[in-house]
């Protein structure tokens, strides 16, 4: 089947999609957007976090066909032009990136958190990011990055 949707502001048609494919697979293998990651494909790690119709979801748990007619924003769509979004820059600066496989999902989830709560408390950060597993950092520098991004957005 073909799936039409808007991805990062561009109308896209994924052609020849097998009905059992997830939105994650469709983004990666049909649309060439490999930023959303395939770490668990069961909604347990958050590495494939994207916006679907403005809502933060795991792309692996969305059936490709369910994205028909929807607007999707992936990690590749956060920054304008060649620069970095403030959240992305904060992750680089705070040292919140090691292997980086969880990073795109965390960047999108942090983006969502700061849209909802511009100055989150430590507890709010932790609860909001509890669905994003990082195996490398132990999370300390991720929390630093969220606070850094929040501080910069305020100023």
């Amino acid at each position: 089947m073909n799936v039409s949707c808007t991805v990062n502001g561009r109308a896209q048609v994924a052609e020849g999609v097998w009905e059992g494919e997830s939105l994650l697979y469709m983004l990666r293998e049909h649309l060439g957007l490999y930023g959303s990651k395939n770490a668990c494909e069961q909604g347990e790690c958050g590495s494939c976090s994207v916006y679907l119709g403005g809502t933060l979801v795991c792309a692996c748990l969305v059936l490709a066909g369910q994205a028909q007619g929807k607007e999707i924003i992936t990690v590749e769509g956060l920054a304008r032009g060649h620069g970095l979004h403030a959240v992305q820059d904060a992750f680089v600066e705070a040292g919140a990136v090691q292997c980086g496989f969880c990073t795109p999902g965390l960047v999108v989830a942090t983006h969502d958190l700061l849209q909802r709560i511009p100055s989150p408390s430590d507890a709010q950060i932790r609860e909001a990011l509890a669905g994003n597993i990082c195996r490398c950092t132990g999370y300390a520098k991720i929390i630093d990055a969220v606070n850094l991004a929040a501080g910069r957005s305020r100023s």
Binding site: E41, Q42, G43, L61, G65, Q66
Partner: peptide
């Protein structure tokens, strides 16, 4: 039927289930 997909998609992704037909209720 599929809604949020948080159960069914796990079964599909991990190759535990191949429904012949899926009805999207979203």
């Amino acid at each position: 039927p599929i809604a949020g997909g948080t159960d069914l998609m796990v079964e599909i992704n991990l190759d535990h289930r191949r429904p012949a037909t899926i009805i999207d209720l979203t």
